[in-house]
């Protein structure tokens, strides 16, 4: 059990402040006792109530407690919190009043009516203070939860960016560019323009919800052109997009991971290289986009294929945009290579 003594001190300071206010109230009710004595009584009751609640919560199993802002042992959940509050108030009333009598008592025994009033005050004050601490604790744990969620989200975003901007691809592209600048400046400029638009979309891709399929194909073209400068005649590619499908909206870079996989797991390991075909077509109200490669195929891949980050990401985005009607199938292609098929509904 780890007690955060700073928090304990802070809580007690708040209890003292609260007791000052209570003492003002009780002085108004029983003007015959001085404010200091009233404050003494309030402090006796308040301290005992606080001690029971502050340290009593450590008796409750941590699993049944909220987290505090630093993830430590917080306020007990549900009925346990209520029982603890009641116990604290009862102890405060029974022991605290007696302690007050011992310390500050003037020998005047209180009337039953006074006892009744002080019981009401203790319960009201205890309940109010507990509610205050409970609400504060809950807010702190909500903030802690939100911070953790934000951290997770930015980690996921970073991971996505890292996969899209794979350092190996980037540095190799730059290395090729460096060669072309000296040997073939015209091609170097063309390559730089491709890299430029590839980077622009990759870096801003997560900020727009969708772009036209024609733009998606253009970005695939940029990527494939960059890759074909690198791979030389080991990479051939075809992009087929019928004119009537050019304006269909798609999430930006939806197809990118599939083409990257086709190169990375299909063609790059293959000594003689091969061909990639990306083709879109409409069947009634369903749009089908096919990414085929003539690479080494799925045989060599670990049996868990299709659960990779890229593929999982495509599936997730399809589901987010089209629910159960969006889908992705991966299968070995007829002879060698892999075929990835994306389907989702389009309005007629």
């Amino acid at each position: 059990m780890k007690i955060n003594w700073r928090d304990v001190a802070r809580h007690y300071l708040m209890v003292v402040a609260f007791c000052c206010v209570i003492a003002v109230l009780t002085t108004l009710i029983w003007p015959r006792r001085s404010y200091l004595v009233q404050f003494g009584y309030a402090m006796s009751v308040g301290t005992i109530t606080w001690l029971v609640i502050e340290f009593g919560r450590y008796l409750v199993d941590e699993r049944n407690c909220h987290r505090d802002s630093t993830g430590g042992h917080g306020w007990p959940k549900g009925w346990r919190g209520l029982v603890l509050t009641a116990a604290g108030i009862a102890a405060g009333f029974m022991l605290g009043d007696r302690l007050g009598d011992t310390l500050w008592g003037d020998g005047i025994s209180p009337s039953p009516r006074d006892n009744g009033i002080s019981l009401v005050i203790t319960i009201a004050a205890g309940a109010l203070a507990s509610f205050f601490f409970h609400a504060r604790g809950k807010a702190a744990s909500l903030i802690a939860e939100r911070n953790a969620a934000e951290r997770d989200a930015s980690e996921a975003k970073l991971k996505l960016l890292e996969t899209q901007l794979e350092p190996h691809m980037l540095f190799n592209t730059l290395a090729n560019l460096r060669v072309l600048i000296a040997t073939d400046p015209t091609r170097a400029i063309a390559m730089l323009d491709r890299l430029n638009s590839y980077l622009r979309v990759t870096l801003s891709g997560s900020r727009v919800a969708s772009h036209p399929l024609a733009a998606e194909f253009d970005r695939l073209g940029d990527y494939l052109e960059l890759m074909s400068v690198r791979m030389g005649d080991r990479l051939r590619y075809t992009l087929e997009l019928p004119a009537e499908l050019r304006d269909v909206p798609v999430p930006p870079l939806l197809l990118q991971p599939l083409v990257e996989n086709a190169i990375r797991h299909g063609l790059e390991p293959k000594v003689e290289g091969g061909e990639i075909v990306v083709r879109a077509r409409r069947d009634g109200d369903v749009l089908t986009i096919e990414v085929r490669d003539t690479g080494v195929g799925l045989v060599d891949a670990p049996p868990s294929n299709g659960s990779g980050f890229g593929v999982a990401q495509v599936r997730e985005r399809l589901t987010a945009a089209h629910g159960a009607r969006g889908g992705l199938q991966l299968a070995p292609d007829a002879h060698s290579g892999t075929r990835a098929v994306v389907t989702f509904p389009v309005p007629a």
């Binding site: 190799n172 290395a175 090729n176 460096r178 060669v179 072309l180 040997t183 400068v229 690198r230 791979m231 030389g232 080991r234």
Partner: peptide, 8 residues
């Protein structure tokens, strides 16, 4: 494996 880089 990248022809331009080999050449460079």
């Amino acid at each position: 494996d990248e022809p331009l880089l080999a050449q460079a």
